[in-house]
Design a protein around this nucleic acid. Structure first.
Lengths: 257, 257
DNA sequence: GCCCAGCCTTGTTGTGGATCAATCGCTTGG
DNA sequence: CCAAGCGATTGATCCACAACAAGGCTGGGC
C-alpha cells in the first residue's frame, strides 16, 4: 500500500487530490446500507477538519491491508474500489464475510486483534485514520460517531441477512440473492441496473456464499439456460427476469409447474 | 409483555424495582462482547437520568416482543434472561441469528422495518426506550452512544465469526464452537464454567447452527461417546476435554490417529 | 398413577452439493 | 506462434447431512 500523501502534511495532499477525502452513506430516507454519496452527512467544514486527521491511500489489487489476528493500528474509510473481507480456518478454508464498497468503514472493532482480513479486489482508495487518534476524532466529531453507529447498524442487518443465506438457503437461492445484491445501485435512489459487472472471481463468490466454485458455476449456467439472467462474459451479468430472480432469492417456492 | 411499571410515572417503578435499570457490557480490558456487568460504564447519575426515560418490562417465555418486518417503535436493553433473535423464510425455514443475553441492545437498526424477530426463551427482563425519544437520549448521553457503537462493533465481530461457522465449518465443528461459546462466563474475567445449562432447545440450536435437530443430537451424542463432553441431561453440559473441543471448534484437523 | 404432548434420540434412506477430474478459453510472456 | 498459467465450465462420483420414521424419556394435568 502506498500513501498518496507521503509529505509531512498529508492533509494537503488529501485535499489536493481531487478525490473525496471521505465517503459516507447517504442519509437519504430511501437509501439503505449500500447507498452512498459523497460527504453529504457532515458539514463541509467538519469534513475538511476531519480530512486533516487522515491520509488518503491507494491499495493495489490483491494487496492485504488488514490482517486477521493482528493488532489494529488504523481505521479505514473506503472511498473507491471494492475490498474483500474474509476469515480463514487453519486448513485454508475461507469465508468472505463481505465486500466493502465506497462508504464502508473498516476497523471499528475495539478488541486487540482484527476479526478479519481485508484485501483489495481492484485498485482501492481508502482514507486512513490512526487508531490512537480515533478516540479524539470521535470526541471532536459527534456527527461522525453518529454516522459510524448508523453504519454499524446497517452492517449488522446485512450480516443477519447473510446468516440466513448461509444457514438456510439453497445454492440457487444463494446465487440469486447474491446477484440481486450486486445489481443494487450505489445510490439506492437510482434504479437498479439491468446489467452490471462482477469485480470478483467465482472463487470469491463461492467463499462468500459458502459454496464451491463448481456449484456457483453450475448454478449460474442453470439460471442462464432458464433465461433468468444472461452472461455476455463470466464477469458481466444481465438480469432478464428480475421478478423470478427476486422470488427465488426470497425463498418463495418454485418448481410447481 | 407486561410492563412492570404501568403507573403514569414508569421511572419511579423502574427505580424502585431493585433490578438494574440498564445492563451494559463491561469496559474491562480483558472482556469481550459476552461479558457484562451492571452499569459500570456510565456514571451513576447518568444512569439514573437515563432510567427516567425508560420502562422496565418483563417478557413471558415464548412471547415475541420484536416482529421482523414491522416498524420498530422501541429500543431495548436486555437486563435478564435469554432472547432468541431470528429471521424466517416464507416457507418456514428459520435462522436464529443470535441469542441475546443481559447487556445486549436490540432495535438499533435505522430502517423502517425490523430486520429480525425477538422472542423470550425464558422469562426475560428488558429496559425499553421509545424510539421517538432515542435521538434525544443519544444527544443527551454521548457516553451512551459510545457504548452503543462499541456494542455494535462487538456484535459485528460475532456475526462474522458466525458467518465463518455457517459457511465453512462441519457439523462437528459447529456444535463444538457453539458449546464453547455457551460455556463462556457472563464476565470474561471469570474462569469459564466447566458445567453449564443450555436454555434453548435442540431445535433452537439447529436453527442457530444451520443444521437439523437430528444432526445436532447425533453430534452431541458422538462428542459424549468420545468423552469430549458429558450430558447429565439434555440441557446440562459438562466440558470434559476443553483442549480437544477448542481444537475442533477452531477447525484444526483431527482424525489423524 | 396414568395419559398426553413435547422434546430428544436413534435408525434408515435419500440427495444437494462437495470432490475429483478433464477440458476449454483467455491472457501473458518468450 | 507456442507454452504456461489461471479462471471458468462441465462431467462423474461420493458423502455429509437432510429427510423420513420410530421409539424413549420427562413433566404436567387430572
Amino acid at each position: 500500500m502506498r500513501s498518496i500523501s507521503p509529505a509531512p502534511r498529508p492533509q494537503a495532499a488529501a485535499l489536493a487530490s481531487g478525490a473525496a477525502p471521505l465517503v459516507v452513506p447517504d442519509p437519504c430516507a430511501h437509501c439503505d446500507a449500500r447507498s452512498v454519496s459523497v460527504c453529504s452527512a457532515l458539514e463541509d467544514k467538519d469534513l475538511h477538519r476531519l480530512a486533516t486527521l487522515a491520509e488518503v491511500m491507494e491499495v493495489a489489487p490483491g494487496e492485504t491491508f488488514i490482517e486477521e489476528g493482528e493488532t489494529p493500528e488504523h481505521f479505514f474509510n473506503v472511498t473507491g474500489g471494492t475490498v474483500r473481507l474474509y476469515k480463514l480456518l487453519p486448513d485454508g478454508r475461507r469465508q468472505i464475510t463481505g465486500f466493502a464498497r465506497p462508504g464502508h468503514f473498516l476497523g471499528l472493532a475495539v478488541g486487540e486483534a482484527n476479526a478479519f482480513s481485508a484485501e483489495a479486489l481492484e485498485t482501492v482508495r481508502v482514507c486512513r485514520f490512526s487508531r490512537s487518534r480515533l478516540r479524539a476524532v470521535l470526541d471532536d466529531f459527534p456527527a461522525f460517531e453518529r454516522r459510524l453507529l448508523r453504519s454499524a447498524a446497517n452492517e449488522l442487518v446485512a450480516a443477519q441477512e447473510q446468516m440466513l443465506l448461509l444457514g438456510r438457503k439453497t445454492a440457487r437461492e444463494r446465487v440469486a440473492s447474491f446477484l440481486l445484491a450486486q445489481a443494487r445501485p450505489l445510490r439506492a435512489c437510482d434504479p437498479p441496473p439491468g446489467r452490471f459487472h462482477l469485480p470478483m472471481t467465482r472463487t470469491d463468490i463461492a467463499d462468500y456464499l459458502g459454496l464451491t466454485i463448481e456449484t456457483v458455476s453450475r448454478t449460474m449456467t442453470r439460471l442462464r439456460t432458464e433465461k433468468l439472467i444472461a452472461l455476455p462474459s463470466p464477469a458481466e451479468v444481465v438480469v432478464l427476469d428480475r421478478g423470478r430472480l427476486e422470488a427465488l432469492a426470497g425463498g418463495f417456492e418454485e418448481e410447481r409447474i
